[in-house]
């Protein structure tokens, strides 16, 4: 459909080739419109008294919009200019730990010129959510994020292989810049750059202990639920859910960024 599409990404614009024939709807705000569709969740959580059929059912995801790429330092800078309370000198301790915007030498200064196109990292859930809200958006739910990654089954092996490669790469001083190849939806850089916050990351708090398949014995959690997984050989998926489970909303990390989501266009 598009041979090349100009994507306005915050303060910069870049031209990125998309595979011919891809039905990608790219809005001027750098977002991708994802169609409604069915999705098989990796993590199958169900109430203990629910039927097995419920546990294995595919989930219907409504149409939504998602940032084509993770939010960059340049974009986050624009937000900080407009919302001074989220600058590193002013952020409240409730909202972020001590490593908030660690790579930024000062309030309005991303690490260096090259860092402008890198995903912003060391942002807390509160800061990420505030950024999205300022754009009239939200963080994607975990299901929306995973649905975008699942890409209707396209490129499954590529995602796994790229994830494992990324796990094995020693940590660099900076994450790579955004602008990787788009998946079938037109979404980029879902793996290989940074982990990403989701709106309801805390909903999966228990799953870091992967061997606890029966939640009923966990006195820390109200309500009985059994968690199974769709594919026990999908190590990168385990890792994503473990990462979410290890987080708290004020945490920041060198490899943790985010992108925003919104309702259907």
């Amino acid at each position: 459909m598009h041979g090349a599409v100009a994507i306005a990404v915050g303060t910069l614009a870049l031209v990125a080739p998309l595979a011919v024939g891809l039905a990608v709807e790219l809005n001027s705000d750098g977002m991708i419109a994802l169609p409604a569709g069915l999705y098989m969740p990796f993590l199958r959580v169900r109430a203990l008294n629910a039927s097995n059929a419920d546990a294995t059912a595919a989930r219907r995801i409504d149409a939504f919009r998602l940032d084509a790429e993770p939010v960059t330092n340049a974009q986050f800078l624009d937000f900080l200019i407009a919302h001074p309370q989220w600058r590193k000198s002013r952020i409240r301790a409730l909202f972020a730990d001590d490593r908030y915007l660690k790579r930024w030498p000062s309030d309005l200064e991303p690490a260096d010129a090259g860092a402008r196109d890198e995903p912003v990292t060391n942002v807390s859930w509160f800061a990420a959510e505030a950024y999205c809200k300022a754009r009239g958006l939200r963080l994607p739910t975990t299901e929306q994020w995973e649905y975008a990654l699942a890409d209707e089954g396209r490129g499954r092996e590529t995602v796994r292989a790229r994830s494992l490669e990324w796990f094995a790469e020693p940590n660099g001083a900076h994450p790579p810049s955004v602008g990787g190849p788009p998946n079938g939806f037109g979404v980029r850089d879902m793996v290989g750059l940074v982990w990403e916050w989701t709106l309801d990351f805390a909903a999966y708090a228990r799953t870091g202990e992967s061997r606890d398949s029966d939640g009923k014995d966990s006195a820390n959690f109200c309500g009985g639920a059994a968690a199974g997984v769709a594919d026990a050989t999908d190590y990168p998926a385990f890792m994503r859910y473990s990462m979410r489970a290890s987080l708290k909303a004020d945490y920041t990390a060198d490899n943790l960024g985010f992108r925003c989501a919104g309702g259907a266009p």
């Binding site: 959580v45 109430a47 805390a202 999966y204 959690f221 109200c222 309500g223």
Partner: peptide, 21 residues
């Protein structure tokens, strides 16, 4: 508030919630 208090929760699919005590 749940984020600030570190209370994880999610719908349990039966009209209720699983949540941290």
């Amino acid at each position: 508030l749940a984020a600030a208090l570190g209370v994880g929760y999610r719908p349990d699919g039966l009209g209720g919630f699983d949540h941290a005590a």
